[in-house]
Design a protein around this nucleic acid. Sequence first.
DNA 1: ATTAGTGTTATAGTTAGATAGTACACTAGA
DNA 2: TCTAGTGTACTATCTAACTATAACACTAAT
Lengths: 138, 138
Amino acid sequence: MSIEFDNNLPIYLQIMNHIKRQIVSGILQPGDKIPSVRELAADLQINPNTIQRTFQELEREEVVETRRGLGRYVTSEESKIMAIKKEMAGELLHQFIHGMQELGFKNQDIVSIVSEAVAEDRKQGVKEGAKGGNTAQS
Amino acid sequence: MSIEFDNNLPIYLQIMNHIKRQIVSGILQPGDKIPSVRELAADLQINPNTIQRTFQELEREEVVETRRGLGRYVTSEESKIMAIKKEMAGELLHQFIHGMQELGFKNQDIVSIVSEAVAEDRKQGVKEGAKGGNTAQS
DNA sequence: ATTAGTGTTATAGTTAGATAGTACACTAGA
DNA sequence: TCTAGTGTACTATCTAACTATAACACTAAT
């Protein structure tokens, strides 16, 4: 595991999202054991207290379950996982569309830009999401 | 002017983005005077020092120009504004597509989701960007 | 019982972001 | 010249996030 940090977001939130993505995308399956506090801390070069906070938040969201003395496990409730997937996707979608509208793009522009970016993606492999799209005009 | 704060992002970055969006979308035109430090601070109920930092960053990005004793003005270089628009749109696009891919969505799913969200938007007026999209399955 | 691997808790210190308050410098206009 | 409205600078204080370190509690396996 390795995460690109450095943003302006708190580390514990970034790690939270990283783990949630792994669960939602199936890299971590329901019931799977997740790394221990100390193990992940050493792995990511992050203080154990920060990892502990990350995990407490994940537990508060019912994404993982704790068995004291044993470790932490991905929830077995697949409905919960699906709900989180929808929530995360909805959040991404909203931020994108709302953001583009604020920049002055029309709805049809937005669809075109996404279509083109995805087409680029298919041609070039997964590179960088087409940064300066040619259709990026309002 | 009013901004919904509260995220985990520093306030000065949020205000920066807000002003950049106003410029890029044409609400603020090239050469326009922007609010003074004290005025915006009072308006947003934010400490003047924080606004000062916001403006310094905007100046560093060459989005605004300062005339000491007079005030600050939106840059007159329209090419600079276009560049920033492309940069901001590219960032939004990349975060969205990359994020959706990490959640396990295929490229064709992503295009469909955006198309539907935009269609919803058209029907319901600008409401909330279609949070729990029905097609949000991989 | 002992050990190793877990989660859990606590104290102390550092840093960035934000606030509070004050003061100084420049410019336009009366 | 004086005043009002600018940008700018500085010190002090507060809080959240993060780090450093240590200790304690529970569980499974030996």
